[in-house]
């Protein structure tokens, strides 16, 4: 009993500890750009503050997912099955690593929107809409990680060595697999936002290209999810 509980507590710590890295850095980037823009356009301070808070709230989503899983794992600490302990640890790894990319990624378009508003405050409405679309697509990678974590938590408590290794592998596949696409989606949205800030008339074209670019970037994330689902359900 002690060993299985230990695994779920470690999983909870990994989920929240790693899960806060991305969002924290991303929100810091947004605030950094907002402060820089304030120095350039002190008159737009109310607008900048409002949009900074919206951008940071969206960036926070990833960390909130990690918090939810972390708390769920803490409540499961009384488990007496070693297999369940391992699946809880895997769920923690999946969501902990899986939020790093989306947190950083959501910070990048937020920061570029702040920069754009600092250059031209009257574009703020268009930029906010575009920023939120970009950030929402960036969150997909975390949502995949959340799905895999929840599946791992809900798994039936039976399985041998093979199944344990497969679940741990699924956690690593989804966790690491979400890092790159999260950051990549953020990069696409960042430069699209800079384009909108330069000339808001191109917004339609840029949104289209941004979504195509983000969809292709997301493919490796989907491979990672497929591999983790195979590891969970087929093995």
């Amino acid at each position: 009993m002690m060993v299985s509980s230990l695994f779920s507590v470690i999983g909870s710590g990994i989920a929240m500890g790693l899960g806060s890295i991305g969002s924290a850095v991303g929100e810091g980037m947004i605030a950094m750009s907002a402060v820089e823009s304030l120095g350039r356009q002190p008159k737009a301070s109310a607008k900048l503050l409002r949009i900074m808070i919206i951008a940071q709230a969206v960036t926070e989503t990833a960390a909130i997912f990690a918090l939810v899983i972390s708390l769920l794992l803490l409540f499961q600490a009384g488990t007496d099955s070693l297999f369940k302990g391992i699946t809880y640890l895997s769920a923690g790894i999946a969501i902990g690593l899986g939020t790093i990319g989306a947190g950083l990624g959501a910070g990048l378009p937020g920061a570029s929107a702040m920069k754009g508003i600092g250059k031209q405050p009257r574009n703020s409405d268009v930029l906010t809409v575009h920023m939120i679309i970009g950030q929402a697509v960036t969150q997909t990678s975390t949502i995949f990680a959340l799905t895999v974590s929840l599946i791992l938590i809900m798994l039936a408590p039976t399985g041998g060595l093979l199944k344990m290794a497969a679940c741990l592998g699924a956690g690593f596949a989804m966790g690491f697999g979400a890092v790159g696409p999260g950051i990549g989606d953020g990069l696409v949205a960042r430069f699209a936002n800079l384009g909108v800030a330069r000339d808001p008339r191109n917004m339609g074209l840029l949104t289209r290209t941004m979504i195509i670019g983000q969809a292709i970037t997301e493919t490796t994330d989907i491979y990672a999810m497929v591999v983790s689902l195979i590891l969970i359900f087929v093995i």
């Binding site: 989606d185 696409v188 430069f191 670019g213």
Partner: peptide, 10 residues
């Protein structure tokens, strides 16, 4: 891929 997509948007 993020770099490619980003610079294309730029």
């Amino acid at each position: 891929e993020g770099f490619v997509g980003g610079k294309a948007c730029e």
